Amino acid sequence: KKKIKIYIENENGEKKTIEIEVEGDIDEIAKELAKKYNVKIVKIEP
């Protein structure tokens, strides 16, 4: 498992940072999160 930080922006332009532990393809997981929460991924840090 890797701990990563995902910087997101919602439709109101509010920026947030999510810190999660992931296993597998980080890009795939980030895309799923973006779709699920309707946010834009700004940056992903390993």
Rank of each mutant, 00 (worst) to 15 (best):
K1S: 11
K1D: 03
K2Y: 15
K2L: 14
K2P: 07
K2R: 13
K3V: 10
K5I: 11
K5T: 13
I6F: 15
I6L: 09
I6V: 10
Y7I: 10
I8R: 00
N10S: 13
N10Q: 11
E11G: 10
E11A: 13
N12F: 14
N12G: 08
G13P: 00
G13A: 03
G13L: 02
E14W: 08
E14H: 07
E14K: 06
E14C: 15
K15P: 08
K15Y: 14
K15E: 12
K15T: 15
K15V: 15
K16T: 14
T17N: 04
T17V: 14
T17P: 01
T17G: 03
T17L: 07
I18E: 01
E19S: 08
E19F: 10
E19I: 13
E19A: 04
E19N: 04
E19Y: 12
E19D: 08
I20T: 03
E21A: 08
E21Q: 06
V22E: 06
V22G: 06
V22C: 07
V22R: 03
E23Q: 09
E23H: 10
E23A: 11
E23D: 13
G24R: 03
G24S: 05
G24F: 02
G24P: 00
G24W: 03
D25I: 04
I26K: 01
I26G: 05
I26E: 05
I26F: 09
I26A: 06
D27N: 11
D27R: 09
D27P: 06
E28G: 06
I29T: 06
A30K: 05
A30C: 14
K31D: 10
E32P: 00
E32K: 11
L33N: 00
L33V: 05
L33M: 06
A34G: 05
A34N: 02
A34F: 04
A34M: 12
K35W: 08
K35H: 07
K36R: 10
Y37F: 10
Y37W: 15
Y37S: 03
N38M: 04
N38F: 04
K40D: 04
V42E: 07
V42P: 00
V42T: 06
K43L: 11
K43C: 07
K43H: 10
I44M: 05
I44E: 02
I44T: 02
I44S: 01
E45S: 04
E45D: 03
E45W: 09
P46T: 14
